[in-house]
Design a protein around this nucleic acid. Sequence first.
DNA 1: TTTATTTAGGATAATTTTGTCCGAAATAAA
DNA 2: TTTATTTCGGACAAAATTATCCTAAATAAA
Lengths: 144, 144
Amino acid sequence: MFSKACEYGIKATIYIAVKSMRQERVSLKEIAEEVNSPVAFTAKILQSLAKSGIIDSHKGPTGGFQIEEAKIDTIKLHDIVHAIDGDKIFVGCGLGLEQCDANQPCPVHDKFVGIRNNLKVMLQNTSLYELATGLDIGLTHLKR
Amino acid sequence: MFSKACEYGIKATIYIAVKSMRQERVSLKEIAEEVNSPVAFTAKILQSLAKSGIIDSHKGPTGGFQIEEAKIDTIKLHDIVHAIDGDKIFVGCGLGLEQCDANQPCPVHDKFVGIRNNLKVMLQNTSLYELATGLDIGLTHLKR
DNA sequence: TTTATTTAGGATAATTTTGTCCGAAATAAA
DNA sequence: TTTATTTCGGACAAAATTATCCTAAATAAA
Ligand code: FES
Ligand code: FES
């Protein structure tokens, strides 16, 4: 469904959000540990999320990653997925035709667009805030 | 969403079904052309679909692939996807945890299982027959 | 100013997925 | 029986994704 990069990116962002809600910055090393992801690969993903403006990064001692608290409520899961995996999952054809077109539909088009839209709506309606809160109160988990 | 192998496999199976409804066998070469897929790669996929019992294969002149007509109605999209991509898409965790477990849910679990189940139900309820019929009457297309 | 710490970024490697090549086996027709 | 045709199956290659390594740049603290 999502790429590994996207899975790591989502988990990392949620973890950063939890810490940011306590006004704490968090280092790459800590993130990778808590999210159970390869450190250097996670670094790349965070770098790109920082360029996308979803997270903030700071170099040097006391450096690390954080998210503007006001943003935590407005950032949606959709934004993270879109930043990492692009929009193929939202607009692409289920059978890989160059583009999904209702006027020249593939055999699964009618059945597929519904599912694809469910996913899109879900991701658009899910805020980073609620994901982070669930993790913070111990309702959900980032590793096993 | 689906792997390339799965996309090719679905399209190929639908095409074979259309021909089988006319009691015609169809060659690998013809399938790959009509489905717009790489010939040799498609051969591998068809080989595995044949082993899974979804399609029948015959060697030699007049050989090719076909599907038992009685089966066309009972084969569901789910069967094809499962044969090629396995069950990860149906039971796997949206964030890549080793296993999806409602007792130790990841942050997206509650939101994700709904989508995942929508997809599963859709695939289980979609018969090869209806997909093949739509293609046969020119309502849908396998390439662009 | 020096040092220690942390992210940035480029090069490289490993793994998985996608795709190719070719000879063997089967089989129908000549 | 010979030949032509078609799938089977194994080895191999290319491309994409995932992952590592190392040096540079920034920056906070000593
Ligand atoms: S054309 Fe294939 S999903 Fe729309
Ligand atoms: S635990 Fe992640 S989707 Fe169920």
